[in-house]
């Protein structure tokens, strides 16, 4: 039997988390297929047909799939499901939106956000904001799973020669329609796959002050993140949020600036290889998990750090 991975893409390119999800799939079974569902997706198909480690790319190309509406994509997944023992997607806002809908239609209890594959039925997943790790064993015939990308290495984006097969579209469920996307434009690396992340918190104080965080990030080629407090205060857009309910990151270097370190934030970054904390409050909980803590006024320390790097 085979494993199906649902590709996350924007019709022009495949998102990096898809490659990590394929690695998780390969730990379950070597025969991995990739579903690319969208519209006008030459770019995404071009990229998909070169991915290493997959045997087949299933192409579902139809206008109603163009905006990746859960109601429509779930129908395609359900149609394909009986050919597979496992169906995996990244635990991104895309996968979190689509997969449970397909799971319910298949009467399957989804396993969310797995961080390890123990065997074909058994998986580890963080619960309680990462304060515990549960090992769960599924008794469902078809297992639907979302994958925490940071705990699986990506497969190579190139070098593969999967065969490509067309999948008949299932039509428009007629329940929802796309109105618009207010995209955050940035030339910086993607937050969840960046080698370095520089994050700011409430201590940064204002949207204007956040410029010093961004300046440091740009100097060292880092992505920019934020704590919930900074997003709630309107310093930065929602998609900067790192934490239990935002994005999960595990870069080589995470620099937390003006972030106190609530458990909900730690849940999203504590697997980073090296953690630096800069905060003027020496009792801030972030220092307990930081490899290098600097007790200092961020408005002095951050520009100094930026100028000396």
């Amino acid at each position: 039997m085979s494993v199906l991975v649902i590709a996350e893409h924007d019709n022009s390119e495949i998102k990096a988390a898809t490659l990590n999800t394929i690695t998780a799939a390969r730990q379950i079974d070597g025969d991995v297929h990739l579903l690319v569902a969208g519209a006008n997706m030459d770019g995404a198909m071009q990229a998909a047909s070169q991915i290493h480690g997959i045997a087949k790319v299933l192409k579902a190309d139809a206008p109603e799939l163009g905006h990746h509406l859960a109601e429509n994509i779930a129908l395609v997944i359900v149609e394909l499901a009986t050919n597979y023992t496992h169906i995996l997607a990244p635990a991104s806002t895309f996968g979190k939106n689509v997969m449970p809908r397909a799971a319910a239609l298949l009467d399957t209890q989804q396993i969310s956000d797995i961080s390890a594959v123990v065997d074909a039925d058994t998986f580890e997943r963080p619960v309680y904001a990462g304060n515990a790790v549960a090992t769960v064993k599924s008794s469902d015939a078809i297992k639907l799973i979302t994958v925490r990308g940071t705990t699986f290495d990506p497969v190579k984006a190139e070098g593969g020669q999967p065969e490509v097969e067309d999948v008949a579209p299932k039509g428009d469920a007629g329940l929802s329609s796309f109105v618009g996307l207010e995209a955050s434009e940035s030339d910086r690396p993607e937050l969840t796959s960046a080698d370095i992340v520089v994050s700011g918190g409430r201590g940064v104080g204002s949207a204007e002050n956040f410029a010093i965080i961004e300046k440091l990030a740009d100097k060292i080629g880092a992505a920019v993140g934020a704590s919930r407090a900074a997003v709630d205060a309107g310093y930065v857009p929602n998609d900067y949020q790192v934490g239990q309910t935002g994005k999960v990151v595990a870069p080589d270097l995470y620099i937390a600036i003006g972030i106190s370190g609530a458990i909900q934030h730690l849940a999203g970054m504590k697997d980073s290889k090296v953690i630096v904390a800069i905060n003027k409050d020496e009792d801030a909980p972030i220092f307990q998990i930081a490899d290098y803590g600097l007790v200092a006024d961020l408005f002095e320390a951050v520009p100094e750090l930026e100028s000396k790097l």
Partner: peptide, 22 residues
């Protein structure tokens, strides 16, 4: 549908290191 095999504490992170200046 999912049986709990076990629930464990995550690996603890050895932090707390401090530096004096930039």
């Amino acid at each position: 549908r999912l049986s709990i095999v076990k629930v464990e504490e995550p690996p603890t992170r050895q932090g707390g290191g401090k530096v004096a200046d930039v």
